[in-house]
Design a protein around this nucleic acid. Structure first.
Lengths: 146, 146
DNA sequence: CTGACTGCAAATAGTTTGCATGACG
DNA sequence: CGTCATGCAAACTATTTGCAGTCAG
């Protein structure tokens, strides 16, 4: 955890970005959560320790972090984005509950064969993929009973 | 193509929705494109034949169609959604060019094994999945030469 | 006929931009 | 110290809602 935060700061410095208390707070907020956080959620968390921060700064910090590939983005349906710290070399995907929004991560997606097939067929240069399963978690399927 | 449009109308009727010229126009616009269309793009296409339609109606029609699973949604990064007619039983995924936004469809995702593993491990009721590869198409990688 | 659908206008949510001030390196 | 970052306000885009009139069934 702390490793991730330190690591993230190093990466920022290396790319010529300054380390400010605000940026540190945003990084801590994202790193300190295993949930995916929307920009607004990050803002709220950060505000608890750092009440004067602006939402704009959160957006700008997210932009920088996402640009460097230090956090990853999820689209959980509708037009809401959320972000999670990308742990080094930990490639993972999401299983999202459509009812309560819970996100479970998983690894081992075994898409390499498919990816190389696509590269051959389409001549695309593939940078990555987004794989999300959608459904209902155990609790929600119990509640609705359908 | 026509089959899809007829089929879609049947499905709407079956679920108690009325068939209006506006709805038909929206369905035609989506069905008539192999590209993914944003709500605004659908609106523009529909307007060519039906200048008095409101953007609101497009949104509402999309909502109905998506609710019945007749169109499918893509998230191509940022906060923009786009829609494509779902052809019957044609399960497909997208390969998206980050530079020009071109979308290539592909099938055969072979995720059944993974899906059943996840169901076992997480007890989720899985309804579907979203798989998107991101990269650069041949043209764009030529242009940028990187 | 009658409830569902439409289109307008206005409200709302989410995100971005311009600019003067402040602080990291 | 210069430059990049911040925070405010305002602009913008995308989407949703309220409402009165209209139309499909």
């Amino acid at each position: 955890m702390i490793y991730t935060e330190k690591r993230t700061e190093q990466e920022l410095r290396k790319n010529g970005f300054k380390i400010t208390p605000q940026r540190r707070a945003v990084i801590d907020a994202i790193a300190g959560s295993h949930e995916h956080l929307t920009p607004a959620a990050i803002y709220n968390r950060v505000r608890r320790e750092h009440p004067s921060i602006g939402l704009v700064t959160v957006y700008r910090t997210i932009e920088v972090l996402a640009g460097l590939g230090l956090i990853c983005e999820t689209h959980a349906g509708g037009s809401c984005r959320s972000y999670l710290m990308r742990r080094p070399s930990e490639h993972h995907h999401h299983l999202i509950c459509s009812d309560c929004g819970k996100v479970v991560d998983f690894t081992n997606c075994d898409l390499d064969d498919l990816e190389s097939r696509l590269v051959k067929e389409t001549r695309f240069k593939i940078n990555g993929h987004l794989l999300e399963f959608l459904g209902q978690c155990l609790e929600c399927s119990k509640i609705k009973g359908r």
